[in-house]
Computed example of a mutant assay.
Amino acid sequence: MARTWRCSGLRWTPQGPVLVWDGGRPSALPWGKRVAFAVAADAVRGCVGARGHACPVRAAVPGRSTGARCEECARLDRAHSVAADTIADDPRPYHVYLAWFGPGMVKVGITAVERGPARLLEQGAVCFSWLGSGPLMAARRTEELLRAALQVPDRIPYAAKRAVRSSLPASVDERAAEVSALHARAVVLDAWPESLAPEPCRPVDHAESFGLCDGPAVVVGDVAELVPGGQVSGELVAAAGPDLHLAVAGRGVVVLDTRLMTGWELAPPSSPAGGFTVPVRELRREQEGLF
């Protein structure tokens, strides 16, 4: 019987993206690496639990869920989440940031100062700049201020980010332009919280880190879900946020959201040649101009 592993997700390190497996073992993902695995034929996708604890009922979860948690574990996870605005007394300092994912796609968000740019890499931000830093509640008020005064969203769907990723402006300056313009408007708002220290606009570009500088090959679709007995095999040509862009023989580039891998028992592919036998959402023809 083939040995199986469970994936804990994609992490971004100073050296690039890595897949992390249960127990903490990392697998580095350099460009050109073949990513190949199979889902155990008799596997059932299980809830990954919450806050480091296993799911008490070992619930099954849908293959298309990117959270891989049952309803109760998802509730417990969000109950201790800064992102869900359920924590008000965190004493750590926080950054407010502006993140750019493509033309017309800028969002505001917050992250603990100690995390540095990790949150931006995890979200797939192609360019970002810090806006200010201070206590958590001041950061929250600034986030809300930008939403109300400048109509800046705090969330952008992953599907929208993927849709523009292969048609980004070629130059760093072009990619930073919207962040710079919004930063200038934000720091002069009258209701800026006194306890949040403004920071200068210093755009950071992640296009090279994501493998997007030369423009990735045309994307033909994205994995809808993993299924028992299904196989994935492709050469890594780019990565952003949780997404791996895999060049699949005879098919083109397919995007795999690694959040779909969690909760499954994964094994080596059944043949050296691999194969790609999981459901893929093909891009509609009217979308092709975006890629």
Rank of each mutant, 00 (worst) to 15 (best):
R140F: 13
P30F: 05
P157H: 07
A163N: 05
D205K: 08
D154Q: 08
D89S: 03
R147T: 08
F210L: 12
L76F: 14
P203E: 11
R175N: 05
G23E: 09
A149K: 03
E122H: 05
S81L: 02
F101M: 01
T13R: 09
V164F: 06
S209M: 15
S171A: 09
T86G: 04
P157M: 04
L226V: 06
V187C: 10
K161L: 00
G104M: 08
L168W: 04
E208K: 10
G132C: 05
A267V: 12
P91D: 02
D257F: 07
A249G: 01
P198Q: 03
A267P: 10
V48I: 11
V280C: 01
P157G: 10
S270G: 11
G67A: 11
E235T: 13
S270N: 08
L189F: 09
R259W: 10
G102E: 02
D190R: 07
V220E: 12
E72S: 11
R259S: 14
E194T: 14
W12R: 06
I110A: 13
G116M: 04
V35K: 01
W12N: 11
L121F: 10
D222G: 14
A138T: 12
T277S: 15
L29I: 03
A163I: 01
L10A: 06
V164K: 02
A125Q: 03
V204D: 10
H245E: 04
L266T: 10
L145H: 04
R51N: 15
R3F: 15
V232Q: 00
P153T: 02
F210P: 13
H206N: 15
G24D: 14
A249K: 00
